[in-house]
Amino acid sequence: MDYPGFLQLLNRAIQEPARSGRAKQIIRFNKASHYRECLSYLQKMKPGLSGLRSVQSSHLIRALIAPMACRERLGKYRNGVVIEEDTRIRVHGGAASLSAEAVSTLPWGVKKIKAHQTWPLSTGSQIRIGVIDTGVDFRHPDLRHCLARGVNLLNRAMLPHDDNGHGTHIAGAIAAASYDRGAVGVAPGAIICPVKAFDHNGSAYVSDIILAIDWCVRNRIDIINMSFGMKTRSKALLDVVNKAHTNGIVIVASSGNDSKRQSIDYPARYPQTISVGATDRFGRIASFSNRGPHVDIYAPGEKILSSWTNNRYHEMSGTSMATSHVSGTIALLLELKPSLSPAEIKALLRRTASPMRRRSGTAPKTSRLGEVDAFRLIREGIKLR
Rank of each mutant, 00 (worst) to 15 (best):
Q8K: 14
L9I: 07
A13E: 07
Q15M: 09
E16D: 13
P17R: 07
A23F: 05
I26K: 07
I26W: 03
Q43D: 12
G48I: 02
R53W: 03
S57E: 11
S57G: 09
R62Y: 13
A63W: 03
I65C: 12
A69K: 13
C70A: 15
E72A: 14
G80M: 10
V81F: 12
E84W: 02
D86P: 06
I89G: 02
V91L: 08
A100P: 03
A100M: 14
V103F: 14
T105D: 11
W108K: 06
G109Q: 06
K112V: 10
T118V: 15
Q126L: 10
R128Y: 12
G135F: 01
G135R: 01
G135Q: 03
V136R: 00
R139W: 00
H140C: 00
H140V: 00
H145L: 00
V151Q: 01
N155T: 05
R156T: 15
R156A: 13
I170G: 00
A171N: 00
A177R: 15
D180K: 15
R181A: 08
A183N: 03
A183D: 13
G189H: 08
A190T: 02
I191H: 02
C193N: 09
P194I: 06
A197V: 03
D199F: 08
N201R: 08
V206H: 00
S207Y: 01
S207T: 06
I210K: 05
L211P: 01
L211Y: 11
C216Y: 03
C216W: 01
R220V: 05
I221Q: 04
I224F: 01
I224D: 03
N225R: 04
T232D: 05
R233T: 08
R233W: 08
K235E: 09
V240M: 04
V241M: 11
N242M: 05
N247F: 05
V250F: 04
I251T: 14
D258Y: 14
R261L: 15
S263H: 06
P267A: 09
R269A: 14
Q272D: 13
A278R: 12
A286G: 10
A286T: 08
F288L: 15
S289W: 11
P293Q: 13
A299Q: 05
W308G: 00
M316D: 01
M316F: 11
S317Q: 02
G318I: 14
T319Y: 05
T319R: 11
M321D: 13
A322Y: 08
T323K: 06
H325K: 04
A331D: 05
L340H: 04
P342I: 10
I345A: 15
R350S: 12
A353S: 15
A353V: 10
S354L: 06
R357M: 02
R357I: 06
R358G: 08
T362E: 14
P364Y: 12
P364W: 10
P364D: 11
T366F: 06
S367G: 04
V372D: 02
R376T: 13
R376L: 14
R379P: 02
